[in-house]
Amino acid sequence: MVKNTKASVALIVQACRHIEQAETAPTLEQLAASANLSPWYFHRLFKEVVGVTPKQYATRHQTQRFHASLNSESTVTEAIYNAGFGSSSRAYDKSRDRLAMTPSDYRKAAEGLTIRYAIASCFLGWVIVAVTDRGICAIEFGDNPESLPALVQARFSKAHLREGGAELSSLIESVISFIEVPGSAIELPLDIQGTAFQERVWNALRSVPPGSKVSYTDIACQIGSPKAVRAVAQACAANKLAVIVPCHRVVRSDGQLSGYRWGVERKRLLLQHESELLEE
């Protein structure tokens, strides 16, 4: 572990300000040189202090700047370049799949936001897909359609929840297709906010291929926090995007199924379904 001192933390805070104020993201070498550290040591120190890498921090800041600029710039192109992306394809590539609900919205339980939803059936029962203007904020399973809106409302207690119309048909069809064939590509914007640690866990989960299983310890080691096994389990429990963030692929160290927010039986069915798809 890199040794954290007040001086080293101050260096990283200064680097964060550098990233935030730069028109284009500075390179690791530039940041390390400004701190008078080697790139290797600076990278380790930055991740230790901030919880994410310098590149991840820069990407997150650019995405936030992009969304903010969309509300103030006269054209989307101006917003893209003012955010420092350099091209529209890069901006949409980085922002499309961000976990993007702002922390202030999340802390306020989405107060003032309108969340639309659509409900459909699948082989796991009933599924609700809830969306804001930014993207999908929740995917939940249930045994009957009547109970599902309350699950979303509980997640975002101060949001205005209303049933969507035909405009959500293709969206929920895409989600159901992904549930049925999880190895397929999915091009859907996500709008969900977590802590830096939760995002690291969720990103690690999305790297686990269909048909595979990992333990909480495996994920903890993968994100560089081998002692944070319990926190990994809590991050899995906090997941709002069933299947897209595949927390069902996490099992106990002995291979036995552990808890699942939407029921252990659904977890078993999902793992069995993915295993069968691999055998076809």
Rank of each mutant, 00 (worst) to 15 (best):
S157R: 10
L278G: 08
V175R: 05
Q64K: 00
G263A: 05
T27V: 07
I192A: 03
Q56D: 08
A159M: 06
Q64M: 06
V201K: 01
T75D: 08
V229I: 02
C137T: 14
S275R: 07
V201A: 04
R200Y: 01
A15D: 10
R230F: 13
L11K: 14
T217D: 12
R155K: 07
N4G: 11
N82S: 13
L271I: 09
L171E: 15
E78K: 05
S121E: 14
L241P: 09
F156P: 11
R155S: 06
V264M: 06
Y81C: 04
S89P: 03
P226N: 06
R155E: 06
Q21T: 13
R268V: 12
G51M: 03
I80L: 07
I115F: 06
C16V: 10
T75I: 02
V208I: 03
G259R: 09
R60L: 11
V152N: 01
A35W: 11
G194F: 02
L257R: 12
F123G: 12
K47V: 05
D254P: 08
P149I: 03
T75M: 04
Q198F: 03
S88D: 07
E73R: 08
T195P: 05
L241S: 05
G259Q: 07
R44S: 15
R44A: 14
E146T: 01
V264A: 07
I219M: 10
F141N: 04
K227W: 07
S147A: 11
V201I: 00
R17C: 08
V232W: 09
N71R: 12
A220H: 09
P226H: 06
H273I: 01
G135S: 00
N82Q: 11
P145R: 02
V245W: 05
T102R: 00
T114W: 10
Q198Y: 03
I219N: 13
P54W: 00
V13A: 11
S177Q: 15
R65L: 10
V245Q: 03
A7H: 11
S170E: 12
S170F: 04
P189K: 08
V229M: 00
A118L: 01
S34G: 12
I186S: 05
V264N: 07
S121T: 05
E23N: 14
T102K: 09
V76F: 03
P246R: 02
L271N: 10
V76Q: 03
S169D: 15
R268M: 14
S8M: 13
C236T: 06
V129K: 10
R17E: 14
C16A: 07
L161P: 08
V214K: 09
R261K: 12
G259P: 11
Y57D: 01
S215I: 02
R268N: 15
S177I: 10
F156Q: 02
V13S: 10
V129I: 15
K240T: 15
S225R: 15
K94M: 14
E29W: 09
L257E: 13
P149D: 10
I172Q: 03
S275F: 08
K94N: 14
G125P: 02
G125K: 09
